[in-house]
Amino acid sequence: MITGLEHLNKAFESKIRLGIMSVLVANESADFSTLKSLLQLTDGNLASHTRSLEDLGYIRCEKSFVGRKPNTRFYATEAGRTAFADHIAALESFLKNQK
């Protein structure tokens, strides 16, 4: 067991969820298809990961229609940004302690 990693967020253990958060923190928002092509995921896979992040309160989504097509747009919440920053800080401090 390596010490110093207890601050890591379990929600971000998945590369996909970490990827989603990276996109949403770097950008104001992203829609479903943008996320899908950036992370190269299938619809179902992306939907299940966004749902779990939504349940944690890290992202929120807004559903609207473009013409007749449903369009889902995701935003990182304040809690999500904080959790993401904490996670990265934990990773970085672990690296620093290793030196």
Partner: peptide, 22 residues
Amino acid sequence: MEKKEIIQTLDDIRDMMAKSSR
């Protein structure tokens, strides 16, 4: 988690942030 793996993860995050915003 290995040190190398963490470095890789941080690189991935950086790449994804750049790729999506630039």
